[in-house]
């Protein structure tokens, strides 16, 4: 139980507590990494890779919604751009190694993020959502018509190739560890961003933009940077996904995908670091299980029902609710 005297505690005691919390957090992450390392021996690696790709996608989306308060309804555009660019390059230039293809796809998505960001942060709230949705639809139509995307068929037979030119990714296990490393990189980047002074200002803008502006922060610049990081990481997720599944298709560019990533984040917990990972795991598993069951045709209805349920009575998401329970009982 909190006592009145505790806030008066000596600075060293506070620091001690912070240190212990940080230690616990690090141990927790370490445990997660160990779980990630042994996971491919316990579950089907391709399934795990799918979860990791979507988890990175959802984490990137969450950086924007959870920490900058911006609801983007167009993140599918970045996922697809990363995927198509990587897929096209790897399929057309056999000498190109997969990591270079992924970097190129990520860069392209980042550039698109700058364009999207400059346009969409001119409007706020629901207008922001509508603008991002509309620009993403524009990108979708461009992919339908562009000569290099294979139109309705998509790109098939993208080679996985050899990492750095000498590690063959044709085995799912090798591929898994590569994807895992990429996920760790993306997650760490987001973790660093959120806990940096930059992340603090972002949260201040989310809570009260006029006040942050009056304190001298250029709110638009902060939002733009957050948007670009989020877009780039979404592109990284898309690029990686293309290498894993050796294809890129219009499904990734469709607005349904933008909706799915919102659902993953909402279900796991908006504004929590682990929520999107958990949300992505649940949604991907659900799709996987439902696809094999008699309910296979009802996936979109079931996702819709979860959506409505989350908004009505589960707004903190799984991780958010667990966090609340933990705080209530153990602090």
């Amino acid at each position: 139980m909190m006592t009145e005297s505790q806030p008066m505690a000596a600075p060293s005691a506070v620091m001690e507590r912070e240190k212990r919390a940080k230690f616990r957090r690090n141990m927790f992450y370490l445990a997660l990494i160990v779980v990630g390392l042994v996971a491919p021996f316990l579950a089907y690696p391709v399934f795990l890779m799918k979860v990791l790709c979507f988890a990175l996608f959802a984490c990137a989306f969450n950086l924007l919604l959870g920490y900058a308060g911006l609801l983007s309804f167009g993140h599918a555009a970045f996922l697809a751009t990363g995927g198509y660019v990587t897929g096209y390059l790897l399929a057309s230039y056999p000498g190109l190694t997969p990591e270079l293809g992924i970097i190129a796809g990520t860069l392209m998505a980042t550039l698109l993020g700058v364009l999207f960001g400059v346009l969409s942060i001119r409007r706020q709230g629901i207008y922001f959502a509508m603008v991002t949705l509309a620009i993403a639809q524009l990108v979708y139509f461009m992919f339908v018509q562009a000569p290099f995307t294979g139109g309705e068929d998509g790109l098939h037979g993208v080679p996985r190739g050899e990492l750095f030119g000498f590690i063959s990714l044709s085995s799912n296990l090798a591929m898994y560890y590569f994807v895992f490393a990429i996920f760790i990189f993306g997650f760490a980047l987001i973790q660093r961003t959120v806990h940096s002074p930059f992340g603090q200002v972002l949260k201040a803008i989310r809570e009260n933009e006029p006040r942050a502006v009056s304190l001298g922060y250029n709110a638009d610049a902060y939002k733009l940077v957050a948007f670009v990081i989020s877009a780039g990481l979404a592109g990284l997720a898309g690029s990686t996904k293309t290498v894993v599944f050796q294809l890129a298709s219009l499904t990734d560019a469709h607005w349904h995908m933008s909706g799915e990533v919102i659902l993953m984040t909402l279900l796991g917990g908006v504004g929590t670091l682990l929520g999107p990972l958990m949300g992505a795991g649940i949604v991907v598993s659900l799709q996987h299980i439902l696809a094999q069951s008699p309910l296979g045709n009802w996936v979109s209805v079931i996702l819709g029902i979860i959506f409505v349920f989350c908004v009505l009575s589960f707004r903190s998401g799984i991780v958010g609710e667990l966090d609340k329970m933990y705080r209530k009982n153990f602090k």
């Binding site: 629901i126 009802w298 209805v301 996702l303 959506f307 409505v308 989350c310 908004v311």
Partner: peptide
């Protein structure tokens, strides 16, 4: 609540209506 939740709720409803009729 924040009006973004209204957008999300109606999005979920749209998925339900559309998906049901597709079936």
């Amino acid at each position: 609540l924040d009006h973004l939740y209204g957008l999300l709720l109606t999005f979920g409803l749209a998925l339900i209506f559309e998906g049901t009729l597709v079936n």
